[in-house]
Simulated assay, not measured.
Amino acid sequence: MADWDDTKQRQGFGSVPRAGDPVARAETFDAGLRSHMLKIYNYMSSGVLLTGLVALLTARSGLAMTFASGPLMWLVALSPLAIVFAMSFGAKKFSQGTLQLMFWGFAVLMGLSLSTIFLVYTGASIAVTFFATAGAFAGLSLFGYTTKKNLQGFGTFLVMGVIGLLIAMVINIFLQSTVMTMAISFIGVLIFAGLTAYDTQRLKAEYQFVKGTEFAGKAIIMGALTLYLDFINMFLFLLRFMGSRD
């Protein structure tokens, strides 16, 4: 005869998970993680779209020429970098509202800075490169989110690659080598493609440490900034290959 003792009965279809049930906890965690990552992607994509809109409007207004040379060029180029450093080192000190304002301000300044690409490349090639980058970013980020492979070991290698890339770019300012420019662009695409997958996995793993804390909201903004930088850098390096010059 079947044993109908409730204490031994297995949980079947349609049953409600008991409090403290590992399955229930896992489902709650997964739902919270999906919400956390979705907020990061929403912030990141909104920032990218704001940058693109500002860049396009600035180029069409004729102001892009103003930012292409002179003192304003350095102001517009270096201001976003200053904000990134301020957000990175002051994330714990700044309030969530302040970080939000800094993020949107950063996106606007990046739009002003990137408006100059419309002076070099055709609008059609910029659009094609943007959508190609968006597709690649989506695939790489999905890989980073779903893969069971630990990408942690690639992190140090990729960061060192970024440092090496910056040094090579500074050197090439003086050399003006076309071959070196193309090599830098190719390596840059690979590095930021790898960082997209790595950073996605890192942000996913970070959730378990920030969930339920006062830093959770800040972590969303900082995560969006990280993925934004991966996207924009991959786009700019790819543009050197796919962009058609005016």
Rank of each mutant, 00 (worst) to 15 (best):
L112P: 00
L56W: 09
D246M: 10
A26F: 15
G111Y: 00
M73N: 11
I167M: 04
T178H: 14
I163Q: 03
A132H: 02
A86I: 09
T147W: 05
T181Y: 15
T196W: 01
W74N: 10
L165M: 04
W4D: 07
F192C: 03
D246N: 10
A132P: 06
L38Y: 13
F209K: 15
L109P: 06
I191A: 07
A31N: 12
Q201S: 10
P71A: 00
D21Y: 05
L109E: 06
I126A: 03
A68V: 00
I83K: 10
E27W: 09
A55V: 05
P17C: 06
G144I: 06
G52I: 02
Y145D: 01
S88L: 06
G90Q: 09
L72R: 12
T178D: 15
F154W: 02
I167P: 01
F186V: 15
T98G: 03
A91L: 11
F241G: 05
G111Q: 04
A132L: 01
L229P: 09
M37L: 13
D230I: 07
F29L: 05
D5Q: 07
L78E: 15
A107M: 07
F85K: 08
R60F: 03
A64T: 01
T129S: 03
F174T: 04
T200D: 08
K218V: 02
Q152P: 12
F103K: 07
V162L: 04
I40H: 07
Q9D: 12
L101D: 09
A127P: 00
A124I: 02
K149L: 11
I167N: 00
N172S: 01
W104I: 08
I221P: 06
I117G: 05
M65D: 11
H36E: 12
F215R: 13
A107E: 12
L227R: 06
A86P: 07
A219L: 04
I40L: 13
I173F: 09
A183L: 14
D3E: 00
M44K: 07
S79Q: 08
R202A: 04
G62T: 04
I191G: 00
F157Y: 03
S69N: 09
T213F: 03
S244V: 07
Y228D: 00
T156H: 06
I126S: 02
S88A: 13
I184A: 01
T129E: 03
K149N: 08
L81C: 13
I40F: 07
V23N: 14
N233V: 03
V108E: 00
G144H: 02
M1Y: 14
N233Y: 08
R25H: 13
R60E: 03
A216W: 07
Q11W: 10
